[in-house]
Design a protein around this nucleic acid. Structure first.
Length: 566
RNA sequence: GGGCUUGUAGCCUAGUCUGGAAGGGCGUAAGACUCCUAAUCUUAAGAUCGAGGGUUCAAAUCCCUCCAAGUCCGCCA
């Protein structure tokens, strides 16, 4: 709705500007004033005009206001010092808005763009931990956001089946006689993590074990030993299945899982290296590498180990070329430790292959108060533990608030609230901030996600209680919204704008702020206005229904469930 | 040593791209359920936007210098 309104305001401003004999840059947009008392849309155009007219900005703004023909949807235009502010006529605007909001509210027009979004892609050498989950939650939320903003999105998980880590696990199985099923842990990925930890210790301390791992890598890459292939594939398959289970618990589903081995087996990696060779980009010392110092990158890009096996980075190049064939934009979510290698990839794509480089969004790490996490050292908090703890805390919380509920009634609610708390907590921070994980901060139920879910549940309860079919109700013609109603209408109206803004910036944390503002506004309305039994009951029920829909759609971007009861 | 990121009330944080009226939340203090669920709401106090300089009518935002924290600089991924 704001799109149309803003356009009308800009048109009116432009018409007023036409009356001056000055050249002004007409490519401007409007802002939201800091306080609703100052209006709904604001322009700073008076500053630009002041420069030409050589008077004070306040006088220019005043003069400008007198020249503006106020469009019908606005009540008035007024200047506050140098700012020219538009006030929406809420008795007209609210009706238009509320009639427009349906279950697809926020869905923007189809954009002609397909995004291939890779996220999570954690090594299948153990369970997902809370360091990885920032990637997953950000990636999944972004994919939901982009879809809502009209893009087509395909999400991929890149499965590292050829890495040294997996070879170490295989060493543990084939040479140390360890069995996955006999390890500690409830889930298969947890057991594999334990096995990895044990095997890794052996490899660290024992030089021949280390050499044996290198041989395993060579043999698997050659791919001729079918028994060995089966062991590798079994480990990876099992670990990925455990990881998937965890992801599903927090509402994350990938469209595709692509194994990196694919690009060895289908010859893409070989072809790529041959191409670099043919074009004269490869230097030879003990290893084959590409010298990037010309592009201001000191670190060389190694193509193959001295024993001839490929490296992650080379296989990754092949993978990214494949992804480029699937869509218009290739987008990766990566930890900031990948910054240098991403820069290398960018240069190789743009300068050597002459192809469009993938777009990358980086995030900083989550560390524990006692230091950074490590699957290798077995030092981490797993996502499964996090989810379990969140659900258990939510259960306790629900019990204390609703002592009458049975365990069967509590369980689904606890899950929705626990998972919401986790996803919201991770999503609300901008990705470039470091985060030290603390249980109490991550799983707080007051003023966090739960209060937003609570607003949704309240709305549901209210609508149920009215026993009316909302779709048959109409807005009262004489209704003039009061301040709390206006505020709620304003926030509902902002939603599509928020979606567009966040999608363009590819940032999801502003959605959490919006959810909080919207829920806050609804709670305020709920507190101060009687709905059932008021003389504008039907109108208010419609408002409640639209607020409910908007909260639900906004939470859905974050993958946070919207409970009907809590 | 070099590169990148971060620094905004006691604490966490938005805003930095695109300069224009410092926004949330926690915590603190005071208050609100005989009335659709108090996981709520109201009010208050709390910020020389890391430091210094520059550009500008205007700087948290742009430029320069410095300080602090994190991170990368593997034939790991």
């Amino acid at each position: 709705m704001y799109f149309e309104i803003e356009k009308q305001a800009i048109d009116a401003l432009n018409k007023a500007l036409d009356q001056y004999d000055e050249e002004i840059d007409r490519n401007f947009r409007l802002d939201f004033p800091p306080d609703p008392k100052l209006g709904d849309l604001a322009s700073t155009i008076a500053f630009a005009l002041t420069k030409k007219l050589k008077t004070s900005p306040n006088l220019v703004a005043e003069d400008l206001v007198s020249k503006i023909e106020v469009p019908e949807i606005f009540e008035k235009v007024q200047n506050f010092g140098p700012y020219v502010n538009f006030f929406i006529d809420y008795s007209k605007f609210s009706k238009l808005l509320l009639e427009k909001v349906d279950e697809n509210y926020g869905q923007l027009e189809k954009a002609d763009e397909k995004v291939v979004l890779e996220h999570t892609s954690a090594n299948p050498n153990g369970p997902l931990h809370i360091g990885h989950v920032r990637n997953s939650i950000f990636g999944d939320s972004l994919s939901r956001l982009l879809k809502l903003a009209g893009r087509e999105v395909e999400t991929q998980y890149y499965v590292n089946d050829m890495g040294r880590q997996i070879a170490i696990i295989v060493y543990g199985i084939t040479e140390m006689g360890l069995k996955i099923e006999e390890q500690e842990g409830e889930k298969i990925d947890e057991k594999i993590g334990k096995l990895y930890f044990l095997a890794n210790k052996e490899v660290d301390e024992n030089e021949t074990a280390n050499e044996r791992v290198s041989e395993l890598i060579q043999n698997y890459e050659r791919g001729e030993d079918e028994d060995l292939n089966a062991v590798f594939e079994d480990v990876v398959e099992k670990c990925v299945s455990g990881i998937k289970e965890t992801l599903h618990r927090i509402n994350i589903y990938h469209d595709d899982f692509v194994w990196e081995g694919t690009f060895i087996r289908n010859g893409d990696v070989d072809a790529l290296v041959k191409y670099f060779e043919k074009e004269g980009f490869v230097s030879h010392e003990e290893v084959d590498y590409i010298d990037l110092t010309f592009y201001n990158i000191e670190k060389e890009f190694v193509l193959r180990r001295s024993n001839g096996t490929s490296l992650y980075s080379t296989r990754d190049l092949a993978y990214h070329r494949y992804k480029a064939t699937l869509g218009d934009t290739v987008l990766d979510i990566l930890g900031s430790d990948h910054k240098l290698s991403s820069k290398q990839m960018k240069v190789i794509f743009e300068e050597i292959l002459r192809e469009k480089a993938p777009e990358v969004i980086f995030y900083e790490f989550i560390t524990l108060p006692e230091g950074s996490m490590s699957t290798r050292k077995g030092k981490f908090v797993s996502v499964d533990d996090l989810v379990d703890e969140a659900i258990s805390r939510a259960t306790k919380e629900i019990k204390s608030r609703n002592p009458d509920l049975t365990d069967e009634e509590i369980a689904p609610m606890a899950e929705q609230i626990g998972i919401g708390a986790i996803r919201f907590f991770i999503a609300k921070l901008s990705p470039e901030k470091h985060l030290t994980f603390k249980w109490d901060e991550a799983l707080s139920f007051e003023r966090g996600c739960a209060s937003i879910q609570y607003a949704h549940a309240r709305a549901c309860k209210l609508l149920n209680k009215s026993c009316k079919d909302i779709s048959t109700l109409t807005i009262d013609e004489s209704w003039i919204p009061n301040e709390t109603e206006k505020d709620l209408v304003r926030l509902i109206a902002k939603f599509p704008q928020v979606v567009e803004d966040c999608a363009n910036k590819k940032r999801v944390h502003n959605i959490t702020q919006y959810c909080q503002d919207l829920a806050g506004s609804f709670n305020k309305f709920y507190k101060s206005e009687q709905v059932i039994g008021s003389d504008v009951e039907d109108t208010r029920l419609i408002l409640v229904d639209r607020a409910k829909t908007t909260i639900k759609n906004a939470l859905d971007i974050l993958g946070v469930p919207a409970p009907e009861k809590m």
